[in-house]
Amino acid sequence: MNEISEGLLQGLHEMTGLEAVAVLFAVLSVIFQKKNNILVYPTGIISTGIYTYLLSREHFKLYADATLNAYYLVMSVYGWLYWAKKGPQKTPIKITRSTKTELLTAVIIAVAGWGIFYLLLVNFSDSNVPVMDAFISAVACSGMWLLAKRKLENWILLNISNFVAVPLLFYKHLYLTAFLTIFLFIIAIFGFISWRKTVQQEEISHS
């Protein structure tokens, strides 16, 4: 416990302005996500852009996580455009449950992504945590794809990624980002409950 406290204090002392901005906008992004607010994307773009740079630095060597954040950035642009899109009644695209095809696609993205990330890390990087780094990134990629399509199940996949990421971040002494991830995990639980309630109300109104 003392080591974690000391690490947190050291992290606060060494935290760069960029990391502070990334953490702030990551918190804002997940709060907007819970509220089903399109501002999840511009705030997310700022945070992921900064993390892409920070995590790729040689000191951390979390190359898959850096690539994941680059993917987040691209998907944030796609999601922003998709959420702004109007449906048949000129209303925003609604939150819905994933279809069987979409869930299957999400699983394929996660499994295939894990394998691809792992092979790339083992063969083309000096990562010392290729299995966990690859898994976290692949599952999060899958979750981000469902988020961009405004699917309820995105929260489940993103939280699996968050759950596995926490011990890895502590291992890498990224204490601030680890505590941020714990916060995101908690918010995601409430986000899932809130989105599920919205979906259930929509289903009842059409039953």
Rank of each mutant, 00 (worst) to 15 (best):
Y78G: 07
R57V: 01
G79T: 02
F32I: 00
W80D: 02
F60T: 02
T91R: 14
L81C: 04
I46A: 12
F25N: 07
S47F: 06
L55R: 09
Q33N: 15
L104W: 15
L24S: 11
M75R: 13
K35V: 01
D65R: 07
K100M: 06
G87Y: 08
E58V: 03
K90L: 11
N69Q: 11
T96V: 03
Y63S: 03
T105M: 09
S98H: 12
P42F: 08
G87N: 14
E102P: 04
Y41P: 04
V27S: 13
S47Y: 06
T67D: 13
W80V: 00
Y82F: 15
V40H: 05
S98R: 05
K61I: 00
I31E: 08
T96K: 15
Y41K: 00
V27C: 14
R57H: 08
G87T: 06
V77T: 03
Y72D: 02
W80R: 05
A22G: 10
N36G: 02
A22N: 08
K94E: 09
V21E: 06
G79W: 10
L54D: 08
E102Q: 12
I109D: 07
V107R: 05
H59W: 06
L55M: 10
I95R: 06
K85F: 00
R97L: 06
N37F: 04
E102M: 01
L24E: 05
T96S: 11
Y51K: 07
S76P: 02
S98D: 04
I109Y: 14
N69V: 01
T67E: 12
Q89P: 01
L39T: 03
V77A: 13
W83C: 03
I31T: 02
L28R: 09
Y78P: 01
S98C: 03
A84F: 12
T48H: 14
Y51R: 07
R57F: 01
E58R: 05
P88V: 07
G87E: 08
F60Y: 05
F60K: 01
V107L: 11
